[in-house]
Design a binder for these strands. Structure first.
Lengths: 146, 146
DNA sequence: TTTGAATAGTTGCTTAAACAACTATATGCC
DNA sequence: GGCATATAGTTGTTTAAGCAACTATTCAAA
């Protein structure tokens, strides 16, 4: 493989992920404007629980690409906010199953709408074909490194 | 513009930026293996100073897409590591100009090589054409939101 | 020229990430 | 059964991000 496939000056945007930072900030701002008082990291955990309620912390680690201490503390904070509950598994007492509260269930529709709007703001002027290719590249990078 | 340009299930990878997180982690790991004891955030500041030594903190904010407190503290830590020096501007006493030390200058070649290798690992199997489109999309997103 | 606004940087606070070290429970093998 | 190992989760520590509030300096306009 050629060692210098890319010009050095082009490295930076790939490594720093300014685009995803910008999306994250905008989403946080849009949550705040709608008086939704959660962080985007907390939202990303809820996102997976909305898809499947009752996941173990380890499953949340895999789903959100975070390590175990990060999930422990995100779940701590979500519990303080009364958005999730830890329930010890009866089959395997090492495992905490995480369940959404009613309050968290009620957040789904509103916050998914805000996330959709945020993505529409972010992707103005970008064609669906370009988006598909960008997603493939990002997925490929993720697979190469995980 | 249509309101639901994207399927909801496709949102997540865009918002969370798993790919850039993965690149960042791999770069950090590769620095560590080479006994380069700096964080990727510190490296990203040095990166811009290698391109142009003697920038103000505000210029570093713009270049690295960080806010002022973040740069204050990154410069604090880089000063502790003796990699940069703050020099008060004589023209405008509000401004700190940040200069690389000799130690930091010596880090450039090695760490840029590691960054190049890391990108090559990340982008295996991705064509230059795909990379160009992905970069355009990410740049477009950044412009839309900044 | 003085007063109000803008700019550059710092500090305090909360949230989160990464890593290492730790506890508790389960599993597999002899 | 008992011991080594793997798995699930927690705690401690350092680094960093984001926001608000703050100080110091400069600029601009009356």
């Amino acid at each position: 493989m050629p060692n210098n496939q890319f010009k050095k000056g082009e490295l930076y945007s790939f490594i720093t992920g300014k685009a995803s930072t910008a999306i994250a900030r905008r989403l946080q701002k849009n949550f705040k404007q709608a008086n939704v008082d959660i962080t985007i990291e907390q939202w990303s955990v809820l996102y997976h629980l909305w898809k499947q309620d009752g996941m173990s912390q380890q499953q949340l680690c895999d789903a959100t690409f975070r390590d175990k201490p990060s999930i422990t503390r995100l779940v701590d904070n979500l519990e303080k906010l009364k958005l999730v509950k830890r329930v010890a598994s009866k089959n395997d007492r090492r495992i905490n199953m995480i369940y959404l509260t009613k309050e968290a269930q009620q957040l789904q529709e509103q916050t998914m709408e805000i996330a959709n709007q945020t993505l529409n703001e972010a992707l103005q002027g970008v064609t669906n074909g370009q988006i598909e290719i960008a997603k493939e590249v990002l997925q490929n990078v993720y697979e190469n490194l995980k």
